[in-house]
Every structure is written in structure tokens, then in C-alpha cells.
């Protein structure tokens, strides 16, 4: 049906146009976004948990590290970190590989404006297939996201840890629990209720940060929207059209609005479940509304 697009009109033209191979790339990139969220959210939470525990540590250098991590990542624009970490991580990995794989090579790694490692240390290797390059780029992006949003999560969790009533911890100590036992058995199980509002906020922030993948060189929805929307002449494609980038980005806008709206509804529901029966202002309000 789509073999001769120039003969098509109206709806059938649009249907064929929207199912070209390149458009499939666009649809797959939505999967990339969801995959990024699915991997990043737990990883960032893990980083956040590490950061928050470090910031509470009794060992001073670890505590300073935790606090510096939280303060620094949040005081500087996040996209500066994105641009920084993608190169820094890449160079760091290549440098370590260089040290291990070809220690006999002379000369410093940084020579003037060049960063030189031996061929065996290149990451990914020069002769590896395309998908390895893409996966490597995507993994770097995931780690970068996790580091940056891990700091935000660390902040939320740190706040939640301090919000757990002091009496709970004192009781644990009175029962003879060690510092570690108090942390794992009393503090950690109780902090989630306090952390949830902040974490749901962070989830929204994370959704809205996904288009930044474009800056990290991943072929994401922003990349495809720019690519597909630009005006096309008949000798370049079977589906010539003017500059439609505005409409493609309008579509992205609608996608993100529905995604955040849906998340909001779900999170509100979870929050309502969790506050049910709690001795907090929100819980009290629920009780009154029911009565």
C-alpha cells in the first residue's frame, strides 16, 4: 500500500508516513526513555542511600564526602554535570584500562590537547559493532543520571532520616542495639514515609530530565523529533514536507504532560494509602473526611 507514496492522499498518506522505518526509530526511542527511567530510578535511589548514609556517618572524612556530594551536585546546573561526567567517565575508564592493559607504553596520557591511550584500551574497542557503541553510550548516560539525581535522592533521604522521631532511636539504644542495628532495623524501615513526598517529586524531576539524554549523544526522542521534523525535499525522501519540527515537539510536550500527569495520579494514590491511619496532618484530614 505504501509502495508509491506520491499517489497517496490525506489519511492514507499520513498513515504511511507515520510508519516509515525512521518513524519506527522515533517510537523505539520512547522505549529508550522508559528504559532509562526504569534503570536510573533504582540506581539513583541506591546512590542516594549511599550518599545519605555517608553524610550521617560517624567517620568524619566519609561524612564530609557525603555532604560535599549532596551540596556540590545541587549547587551547580545539572546539565553542566551531564556534559562533564560523560567525558570524565569515558576518560577515566580508558585511563584505567590503559594502565592495566598496556603499562609499557611511554608518554603521558594527556599530551597538549589530546588524550592518548593505546588502541587496546579504547572503550569500546575500535572494531566493535555499532550496538556496543550505543550500549556503552547509554550506560554512561545512566551512570551520569544516577550520580546527579542520586545527590538529590541523598538529600531527600538525609532529610527523612533526620525526620524519624528521636525517641525511636533512643528506644533502640535502650534495648541495647548497636549503632548499625539501630540504623538497619529502626531508622531505615521508618524513614520511607517521610521520604515519599520528596521521592515522588524527584521522580517528576527525573521524568522531566530525560530529554537531556539528547545532550549526552544518545539517539533519543529529541534527536528523532529534530531529525524527522526538518523540511524534506522530494529527492531526499518519498514523503516531502515542510518544517514540521514544531509539531513534533508539540507531540513531545503532550507526551511529557500526560506522563507527568499519570505519575502524579498514581503517586497521590500511593501517598493516600500510606498516610491512611498515620498520626500526621494528612492522616487526620483523611479521618475527618471519612467521618
Amino acid at each position: 500500500m505504501c509502495s508509491d507514496p506520491s499517489a497517496l492522499h490525506g489519511f492514507s498518506w499520513l498513515a504511511c508516513y507515520l510508519t516509515t522505518a525512521k518513524h519506527m526509530g522515533l517510537y523505539w526511542s520512547f522505549g529508550t526513555v522508559l528504559l532509562l527511567l526504569a534503570i536510573t530510578a533504582p540506581t539513583a535511589l541506591l546512590f542516594g542511600f549511599g550518599g545519605a548514609s555517608a553524610a550521617r556517618s560517624r567517620f568524619a572524612p566519609l561524612r564530609w564526602f557525603g555532604k560535599a556530594y549532596i551540596a556540590l551536585v545541587r549547587g551547580v546546573p545539572d546539565i553542566a554535570f551531564f556534559l562533564f561526567f560523560v567525558i570524565a567517565l569515558d576518560q577515566g575508564i580508558e585511563y584505567v584500562r590503559h594502565l592495566f592493559l598496556c603499562p609499557s607504553t611511554d608518554g603521558p596520557v594527556r599530551q597538549g590537547n589530546d588524550f592518548i591511550v593505546c588502541a587496546a584500551a579504547k572503550m569500546p574497542l575500535g572494531n566493535s559493532p555499532q550496538w556496543v557503541h550505543e550500549t556503552y553510550g547509554f550506560s554512561l548516560a545512566v551512570i551520569t543520571f544516577a550520580i546527579v539525581y542520586g545527590a538529590f535522592a541523598a538529600n531527600v533521604l538525609f532529610g527523612a532520616m533526620t525526620a524519624v522521631p528521636r525517641g525511636q532511636l533512643e528506644t533502640a539504644e535502650a534495648y541495647g542495639m548497636s549503632h548499625r542495628q539501630t540504623f538497619w532495623r529502626v531508622l531505615v524501615p521508618q524513614m520511607w514515609v517521610y521520604a515519599l513526598p520528596g521521592l515522588s517529586n524527584l521522580w517528576m524531576v527525573l521524568i522531566k530530565a530525560t530529554p537531556l539524554l539528547f545532550l549526552l549523544g544518545v539517539e533519543d526522542i529529541v534527536y528523532w523529533a529534530r531529525e524527522l521534523g526538518g523540511s524534506k525535499t522530494p529527492n531526499y525522501t518519498d514523503y516531502p514536507h515542510g518544517d514540521w519540527r514544531m509539531w513534533y515537539f508539540f507531540f513531545l510536550l503532550v507526551f511529557y504532560l500526560s506522563f507527568t500527569r499519570l505519575s502524579e495520579l498514581v503517586l497521590n494514590r500511593i501517598m493516600a494509602k500510606l498516610t491512611f491511619g498515620q498520626a500526621t496532618a494528612a492522616g487526620e484530614k483523611q479521618r475527618r473526611a471519612a467521618a
Partner: peptide
């Protein structure tokens, strides 16, 4: 919606 997408949309 993300500010980044808002920028792109507004520009086009």
C-alpha cells in the same frame, strides 16, 4: 513538561 522541550517547541 521539561524546560528543554519547551525551549525547542518555542523556538520552532
Amino acid at each position: 513538561s521539561p524546560l528543554f522541550v519547551q525551549f525547542f517547541f518555542a523556538y520552532f
